[in-house]
Design a protein around this nucleic acid. Structure first.
Lengths: 232, 232
DNA sequence: GACGAGCTAGACCATCGGTCTAGACTACCA
DNA sequence: TGGTAGTCTAGACCGATGGTCTAGCTCGTC
């Protein structure tokens, strides 16, 4: 809860510059160990709990260098998030509008598989998930610039699903998107927690079957067993 | 990331003692302002972001008193959580086993309404939700002692639902419990964010309709429209 | 009255995130 | 060659943080 000094300089983070514009990437190479360690520390301790001072010391940089390249701790967090997120949209691919409910779920499954493929065995995205779980506030701020790249396509797909009768239209599409993300997160967490107890075979089966949770949740109510609402 | 001193005393938090054992509750009265402020600050800034020093100063206690009554900051957090959670299980009531799917969902709806009633207009539980959203790690630790009181009844109810055909049995019941909680959290967050834009009438309608998200997600797959899984 | 237990205030401490200054290095210009 | 400006760097410095500890006060017991 420290007050900010009135004389704080307006500082542009050098790590946020387009590295491609520089023929020499020496500073990028020197910063990679810091980014790697930051991902690990933020994942383990959360944004606030991870010590920037300790990280700086551990990778052998000076505070002057660190604060020259990253404006502040949040800027470092953003850089870590950015590095992990950037490859994902292209790996998942774009949604192609479909004409039937079957095609809707078929394409959904393929995209989910591509997303899981892009994330499997990737230390950066594994850390990203843990960072998000530990520091939702910091992640929301860091993720802000990327959110349109994820949420808009999801909403677009849900709207396509509505047109072909795969997705319910009795609730706002934004609510459905939020619930899908919430359900997905809960599922990821559970599978991550219990993955070691289950064998790879069982994990694979559960991951496949779990798609039906989304399918059923999102299905139009008429397509499911109807039950009269009890009036108490 | 500060190292703990080796000579740290093993200290029992006085605020955690059974206050009913003391005829005089003077210390409880003096601590209430601190607990109230803590709830507010933790909800707004999260566990790490809220300053214990600033809180202590603001309610006019000395550090000696504060650390005498609460072992550390986490202990204060636990006390705030404890105070908010304690009345909930009895307000929600116990699950009574049912014989039909209709009765299952009827009782579920009643319990959900009782839970929402217990939480409505209650500053403590409102803060609790925000604390959970902001500091999932700290909340998981503080909530640990209470988790059995919430999760076990949910699992028990889901198992009853399985026996009467209301709940699927193709996925582990623990997974279903986690997904229900995750979906509920996502829904709460969305409604809290967008409640101001919607009128009370629309909110009421959405809250009612949203129950069908759970119902459909949890329903046995045979009860829903079947689709052959696409093999890519 | 002496002693011990409990309670209290606030000085003290190491660590934190962030600021700032002095110095080194390089390139450019007269 | 010397002077100047810009960039980069190390690390001293600073206020705020969570937590520790000491001295002193009060009360109850013997």
């Amino acid at each position: 809860m420290s007050g900010k000094k009135a004389s704080k300089r307006e500082k542009v983070s050098t790590a946020s510059r387009d590295a491609g514009a520089h023929p020499a990437t020496a500073f990028s190479e020197r910063l990679a160990p810091l980014l790697d360690l930051a991902a690990e520390q933020f994942a383990e301790h959360g944004f606030e709990g991870a010590s920037y001072n300790a990280m700086i010391e551990r990778v052998g940089l000076s505070k002057g260098v660190a604060y020259h390249h990253f404006r502040d701790k949040a800027d470092l967090f953003r850089a870590v998030v950015s590095r992990a997120i950037e490859p994902l949209p292209s790996a998942i691919g774009d949604w192609n509008d479909v004409e039937t409910a079957d095609a809707f779920w078929s394409q959904t499954e393929q995209m989910v598989e591509r997303a899981m493929g892009a994330m499997a065995g990737n230390a950066r995205t594994a850390a990203l998930l843990r960072m998000a779980a530990r520091s939702p506030g910091a992640m929301a701020e860091a993720f802000g610039a990327y959110e349109p790249a994820f949420t808009a396509p999801l909403i677009h797909a849900l709207e396509n699903g509505r047109r072909v009768g795969a997705v319910r239209d009795d609730l706002p599409v934004e609510l459905l998107a939020a619930c899908s993300i919430g359900l997905g997160s809960a599922l990821d967490r559970w599978l991550a927690q219990h993955g070691a107890d289950l064998g790879p075979r069982r994990m694979r089966t559960l991951a496949t079957q779990s798609l039906s949770l989304f399918e059923q949740m999102l299905a139009p109510p008429q397509a499911t067993r109807s039950r009269s609402r009890s009036k108490k």
